[in-house]
Amino acid sequence: MTRAFLALVLRDLRLAARVGGSGAMGLVFFLMLVAVVPFALGPDLNLLARIGPALLWFSAVLATLIGLDRLFQTDVEDGAIDLILSSDTPLEVLVAAKGVAHWLTTGLPLALLAPLFGLLLALTPGAMLAVAATLVVGTPALTFIGAVGAALTASLGRGGLLLAILVMPLMVPTLIFGVSAANAATGGTIAFLTPFLILAALSLVAIVIGIFAAAAALRQSA
């Protein structure tokens, strides 16, 4: 079971790194969003610093979304899903492996680079740290909520837009508590830990529900 889990994580990481893989695409998209929004808002650093955490979080949601439609779709297209479904390892474990690989190539790098991009938005060091911490804790929720949508649209060919429509509403709670935790860290009326712990709880719940729902959806649709 561990062997199959590791093999799938390793395979997806390899695929992401090789030519034609999605690699750092989500990260580049993240940078683009952060860089382009000030053109719409104006370069007022006070304004940008105030909305910076929210902007980084929203960009992280969008950057997670754009690669998600391919999560299971590639395996359905080339038939590798047959192997995954006929494994003697429970499908839930394998879905978890896909999610972990996706998070390692998307969510984690986003969280780690967010402080750097925070420089563009004149965030204070405290705010940068808070955004990074909330993203590390919150992006697993985005990945696993998205995995449900990815599993549902896996056999539809062009699932990208549909996927976004399906899962964006489900990401709202994560967004709310992620941004409030990041804001609370830099001053405000509530303590940092309150929204942060709720965010952590949301993430854990999303991982569990996401794994089982995505596995069920894959059994139906693939």
């Binding site: 038939g79 192997l83 003697d88």
Partner: peptide, 30 residues
């Protein structure tokens, strides 16, 4: 779990070597 199924789709990843593809299949099938 006792079935080895080779369908009309090969299930091979173009970017992985033949050996890596088979090692992955081996890990899945047990």
């Amino acid at each position: 779990e006792v079935t080895n199924h080779v369908g009309h789709k090969e299930g091979l990843k173009a970017a992985l070597t033949a050996e890596e593809n088979l090692a992955f299949a081996g890990a899945m099938l047990g």
